[in-house]
Amino acid sequence: MMVNGYFILSVVIAYFLGNISPSTIQAKMAGHDIKKEGSGNAGTTNTFRVLGAKAAVITLVIDIAKGVLAVLLGGWLCSSVAAYACALAVLLGHVFPVLLRFQGGKGVATAFGAFLAIDWRMALLCLLIVAVVVLLSRYVSLGSLTAAIACPFLCMWLEPGFVPYGVVMALIVIFKHRSNLMRLVRGEENKLNFHKRDRKGE
């Protein structure tokens, strides 16, 4: 793999795309601090709990779009390998955003967007896994964790060249869900409630 200026440029742009936080922006506009309310996570689920469905949908769409755009940019500026690197970079930018003092979200929607641009079949299978697990358990975090565990195997099947990046991305998502995992083990994780906003969870 040859690393050139375009490769580096695409990865840097992808990282800073990941820094864009729609949940944080919307919360500030509404007089809230998303990092201090609900679960304290700047993601779709906590946005739904703190700000409501409309803000959550906006957050979800933008976070997915970040992943898609980053991968497409890498492929357009450089190569398929750059696209893979940009998938990892945009996730790192979302999870550890330098512009937000490294306090980002858990990366599920952004990772989904990146997968969608790399191989839509892989993305849809991950989405199916999340949907089934959440519908059966009502634990969003469990759905995310299950999909993250399945990710490397899906990569081996559908996109072998992406396996090293997919493994690292899966580990990042699992790491960011470590508190959820501990609450699941202790039976303290809150279930998703579509009728009222909870204070804890994803």
Rank of each mutant, 00 (worst) to 15 (best):
I13T: 09
G31Y: 08
Y6K: 10
P97E: 01
R197S: 11
G31F: 11
I13F: 08
A30P: 01
L135C: 14
A55W: 01
H32N: 13
K36T: 14
S179W: 06
R121C: 04
A89T: 01
F48M: 04
Y15R: 06
T146H: 03
A14K: 11
V95E: 10
A111S: 15
L88T: 13
E189T: 07
I129M: 14
V108E: 09
G201H: 00
G143D: 06
N46C: 07
V95W: 05
R101M: 00
Y139T: 13
V108H: 12
N46I: 10
A70E: 15
G52F: 01
F194I: 10
V168L: 07
V90T: 07
W157G: 00
L181M: 14
M29S: 12
N19C: 15
G161R: 11
V134Y: 00
V108Y: 13
I20T: 03
A14Q: 13
F48G: 00
F153I: 11
A131D: 03
P164L: 03
L88N: 06
P164H: 03
A65R: 06
V11E: 00
V61N: 07
A70C: 14
H177M: 03
V61W: 10
E37Y: 02
F153Q: 07
A147L: 13
N190D: 13
G113S: 14
A85R: 05
I149A: 10
S21Y: 06
C86Q: 03
Y15F: 12
N41M: 03
V163C: 04
W76L: 14
L92M: 08
R199M: 11
K35A: 02
N180V: 02
V81T: 12
A109H: 05
P160T: 01
H32E: 11
H94G: 11
A82T: 10
E202R: 05
R121D: 05
M29Q: 14
V95G: 10
V140R: 00
D198L: 04
F194Q: 04
V108G: 13
L145H: 12
C78A: 15
Y165F: 15
N19H: 01
A14I: 08
R178M: 04
I13E: 08
P164V: 04
Y84K: 11
L92G: 00
L99D: 01
I58V: 10
G5H: 04
L124T: 10
S39M: 01
G107C: 09
K196P: 03
F175I: 05
F162Q: 02
I62Y: 03
V3M: 15
I58Y: 07
F175M: 08
K35F: 03
I25Y: 08
M122C: 03
E159N: 09
A89Q: 02
R49T: 05
F162C: 04
M29K: 15
I58L: 08
A14N: 11
L125N: 06
P160H: 02
N46R: 09
I64D: 02
N41C: 03
I129A: 12
F112Y: 13
L88S: 09
L158M: 13
L154M: 02
D198F: 00
V57E: 04
V11C: 07
A83I: 07
I129P: 12
N180K: 00
